[in-house]
């Protein structure tokens, strides 16, 4: 087919290829942008304004300056919740990462039953949080209902209070939360391990480097991107913990005596039990700031490599 120059020129669109491409891109992006703008970004920004008001949903918000923040920082309840939230973060993240790496490291080395075990580890991740929380609640019951106490009893250890103890309730809930997220982390770690070329290990074996040195000198450094991702992901997860706590302490959410209450649960209660929207917004701003700082910190650690 021969091209006639004049008809070609006549048919050429007025917009440049670049402009047309950009228009198409924005046409597809418009809907999500609109959705996020209205449903996500606007309320997020509005929370900053609301945090400076007194608002009970009925009457219009009244500007009260930093009153909400002053009250929050003066309240021992808030600091209890603050400590709880960081306990989830500081204990939960390292334990879950060490556990999931260990599982992934060894699971990666076996062939027999590999797929089955992997599925088993992943199962909790796809289970409804509330159903799981209830099962664990049962585990923690006194003997003979509770499996754990029955086993402890058989070993001669007296009944543990678990969820009813101000000392043990938080760790007990944390176990559930770690268990729930473990499968996902195992899968991601295994993908990371698989992406390390085998020849790195073969070269090390020929050089006579032992398993422990290979792990420290080769595997862990090369796994760093995966690890950083999981640290960020898991940290955010523990900072936002809610489901497990709420469902395992339904009689007194965040109890006993607020010893398991995380920030998100406090926000929920302030907003939807007490209808103090302004105070809840102030707590949200605090959570937002913490999440932002921790994420930025972790991104900075990633960038130094």
């Amino acid at each position: 087919m021969a091209f006639d120059d004049t008809t070609r020129a006549a048919r050429a669109p007025r917009l440049s290829m670049r402009t047309r491409r950009a228009l198409w891109v924005w046409a597809f992006l418009a809907l999500p942008v609109l959705f996020y703008g209205v449903i996500r970004f606007y309320p997020t920004l509005d929370a900053f304004r609301l945090s400076l008001t007194n608002w009970n949903l009925m009457s219009p918000p009244k500007f009260i300056g930093l009153q909400n923040y002053r009250e929050m920082f003066a309240s021992p309840d808030f600091w209890q919740v603050f400590r709880n939230t960081f306990a989830y973060l500081v204990i939960g993240t390292p334990i879950s990462l060490v556990l999931s790496f260990t599982v992934a490291y060894f699971l990666d080395r076996i062939r027999f039953g590999h797929a089955f075990l992997r599925a088993l580890y992943f199962l909790p991740y796809i289970t409804t949080a509330s159903a799981m929380a209830w099962v664990w609640r049962w585990f923690y019951q006194p003997a003979p209902t509770g499996v754990i106490n029955s086993v402890l009893g058989a070993l001669g250890i007296g009944g543990m209070e678990f969820l009813r103890s101000t000392t043990w309730a938080l760790p007990s809930i944390m176990v559930t939360a770690i268990w729930a997220g473990l499968g996902f982390q195992v899968i991601i770690f295994m993908a990371g391990l698989r992406s390390i070329p085998q020849t790195y290990y073969e070269a090390a074996r020929i050089d006579g480097v032992g398993d422990w040195a290979i792990l420290r000198k080769i595997t862990l450094p090369l796994l760093k991107p995966t690890t950083v991702f999981l640290v960020v992901f898991s940290s955010i997860g523990f900072l936002r913990i809610f489901d497990q706590v709420y469902n395992m302490t339904t009689n007194d959410p965040g109890g006993p005596l607020g010893t398991t209450k995380p920030l998100v649960l406090m926000i929920y209660q302030t907003a939807f039990n007490s209808y103090q929207m302004g105070a809840a917004a102030a707590q949200t701003v605090v959570l937002f700031t913490i999440l932002l700082l921790i994420s930025l910190l972790q991104l900075w650690i990633l960038r130094t490599r």
């Binding site: 020849t199 790195y200 020929i206 090369l222």
Partner: peptide, 14 residues
């Protein structure tokens, strides 16, 4: 007592 050189070099990026 041997040493080996691989096709993809197997030198460590870190």
């Amino acid at each position: 007592d041997i040493a080996m050189v691989f096709q993809n070099y197997a030198i460590y990026p870190h």
